[in-house]
Design a protein around this nucleic acid. Structure first.
Lengths: 236, 236
DNA sequence: CGAATAGTGTCTGTTAGACATTATCGA
DNA sequence: TCGATAATGTCTAACAGACACTATTCG
């Protein structure tokens, strides 16, 4: 039997392990939360909320991302998933580094509670970002748009209560083109996602729309359709 | 200006950074390549091909996975993509660790060139695996089955040259149910993936089938359909 | 010619989307 | 009553899949 140590194949140079979060909202276009870096390297540059994994407090990468979200943005997000891992010798001047990137979604009506330093930028007109964060944002946006074709992901950009016309507008903003109202409602109905709630929302002189909310068992999860909602978009 | 070091927020405990590869083939069922570990921890246990990222030679996680594939399996795989990153304090007894998991596909007719120690196991009847590798394999299989619904991924499990009935059988094995021949061929045709080649393959007393190969510009890439090929499967 | 598999033509039930109609509000 | 938006009914063109038919090989 071998003794349990030393690990013969251990990496010579330790690798920097970080998580980053692409926090998105729809207000009214798709926007991403950025923070100016408060320390070197690249102090002052705009970057995604993120930081080092803490071995003593993080249970896994997703938990590290949730901690980062809480600490840096102050927002409580109904949706958080892992996106992909970016790594290499050049992306951080301190050395070979890994970033486990995540995507988070927050409804626009919760933005007021966020940290004051947060800066929201439309994803289609980004300023220069630190590290390889522009590439990470691009991949996150592609993933969100792709999943909007065949899942309930966009409901996590609406608030707790919303109308079907509002939800359709969210899907249309993500997919980039108008959807057929009848087909859209058939799909949403088939997904068995929503339940009607009392109360009405109206904005003017017209028939008020029914309010809906996610069914309990759909909370925090994605529901998939077996047919596409919109036209095909290139997936990651 | 701040000096570039020390990094104020650097992780106290270094984190172990590894890559693992879920190498799959279809022969005739879906099988995964496993290797008995040759050192502690868990020496002798079956594990995925993988190892530490080497900061001095790997350009990124995908390159590290490709190096690992070459070194540990000896196989040249036409398809390799990142799957997801698994991490936590308990998955490796040496401490908080990260595994950037990948999926690779290899046609069954190339298996003979692999390393002699490789052991192939049907993914539906796996033995006990080291670390959290069973979970990684499960997620890889789910991803491959899901992508088989709407992409050309299964062609990478066929050899260089194949017939349409062979390709359909590969799709059916992955999706777990028979497909309509006419619809399947319509879809493959719409994807504009394949070109016919000279030569015929026949196995007996019947009409020989046309041979096809991937068009050049489709090499190494996935092509997507805008409609599903089979019934919906729960995606990761 | 018969068996077996490859490949294609055709028909029909289903579905997506265009359009029209009804419903419900405020002014 | 009118304008505006919500919600639903209906019709048609397109598509998926079932079926049948032809093609091509070997024995």
């Amino acid at each position: 039997m071998n003794p349990p140590s030393p690990p013969l194949e251990a990496a010579a140079t330790p690798i920097l392990c970080t998580v980053d979060v692409v926090l998105l909202t729809l207000n009214p276009q798709l926007q991403v939360a950025l923070l100016p870096r408060d320390r070197a390297p690249l102090a002052g540059a705009l970057a995604l909320p993120g930081g080092f994994i803490h071995a003593d407090e993080d249970a896994d990468p997703l938990a590290a991302a949730a901690r980062m979200l809480r600490a840096k943005t102050g927002l409580d997000c109904p949706y958080l998933e892992q996106l992909a891992t970016f790594g290499g010798p050049g992306r951080d001047p301190r050395g070979w580094s890994i970033s486990v990137a995540h995507v988070a979604l927050v409804p626009a009506d919760l933005l007021a509670r966020g940290a004051p330093g947060l800066r929201w930028h439309p994803v289609d007109a980004l300023p220069a970002l630190a590290f390889d964060h522009a590439q990470i944002v691009a991949q996150a946006v592609a993933r969100v748009r792709s999943k909007s074709q065949y899942s309930s992901l966009p409901v996590h950009l609406c608030g707790e209560r919303f109308t079907l016309p509002q939800l359709q507008a969210v899907y249309e903003a993500l997919l980039g083109e108008p959807l057929n109202k009848v087909s859209f409602r058939r799909r949403i109905d088939e997904m068995d996602l929503l339940e009607p709630i009392e109360g009405e929302r109206t904005g003017g002189a017209h028939r008020p729309a029914q309010l809906w909310r996610l069914k309990d068992r759909r909370r925090g999860a994605l529901t998939l359709t077996d047919r596409l909602l919109g036209p095909a978009i290139l997936a990651p």
